[in-house]
Amino acid sequence: MAYRVIHYINQFFGGVGGEEMADHKPEVRVGQAGPAMALHAALKGEAEVVATIVCGDNYCVANQKEVAALVATTVKKYKADALVAGPAFNAGRYGMACGTVCAAIGEACGIPTVTAMFPENPGVELYKAGTYIIPAADSARGMGQAIPAMAALLLKLLRKEALQSPEAEGYIERGVRVNMFYEKPGAERAVDMLLLKLAGKPFTTEYKMPVFDRVTPRPGITNMAGATIALVTSGGIVPKGNPDHIAASSARSYGEYDIAGVNDLTDTTYQTAHGGYDQTFANQDADRVLPVDVLRDLEREKKIGKLHHLFYSTVGNGTAVASAKKWGEEIGQKLKEANVQAVILTST
């Protein structure tokens, strides 16, 4: 008998509509809709997609528990053996939705779950531990590649076949440690590894120690009254209208803005570009994220020398660490050249 699969997709791929329909409530359709048809075909009769759940991305992200509960009920009703979601490609909220649904169902129902997304989709970092994510292209052009890969991994999971390494199986490493029995006792493996390391030959560690980019803090400033202080934020504060088009998530750039003569950020002059938190309070008064008003007070009170006339801003919401590191170095260099003594970094 064929395995039974439920497929979760968003409003766009379900044919409901685009961004304007992102609040669409989840609906269960019997059989296959949208990408579920291609998945159904790729499963080649060994498994079948018995139902498709279509849900708006905003609705899912805002009502994660409710949507997960509905998917769990559907899994039980249809006696499903597995759940597939996406591919979400590089759509941030769709990635979050696929990730949260897969992780929740895997935990609640104990069935295999598979999704697919672009490796830099913020959903990857958040949910890779809780589900299997196939790396996909950044747009729907990659559908033809993603679906067969998802089907192949899903069938292996359904057959309860032992999985090889993530590289061999073609999914994004989940970072989950699983016990196994090796051929040799640990002591012999240790000496084998030592001999390889001594000979300068390649060896594979059994546990990769996490490497953290630690920065030793500079000594404290002794004369604050003479210091130039700069503001830098990943909270997305930008001049009204977001002139540099800093992206709401997975930012591709940062902005540099002149605040000479600006004493207060107001709802008519500044806003946030950040899409990962409730913007209401930041848009009402951007000083809440980038405290220009308070620093001007300190400047007047001669508690600090002065506030640097430029501030730097980007969005931390799913932004690649490599980009953030590169921008951080650039911004640091600029501040150093401008003789800034200290920086206040604000996040959200």
Partner: peptide, 22 residues
Amino acid sequence: ELQAILGATNELGFNKIGAYTI
């Protein structure tokens, strides 16, 4: 948990057990 079993994850490498990342 394996923690309760005598010698289960012995750090002198007495056993064949290990772990890998999925």
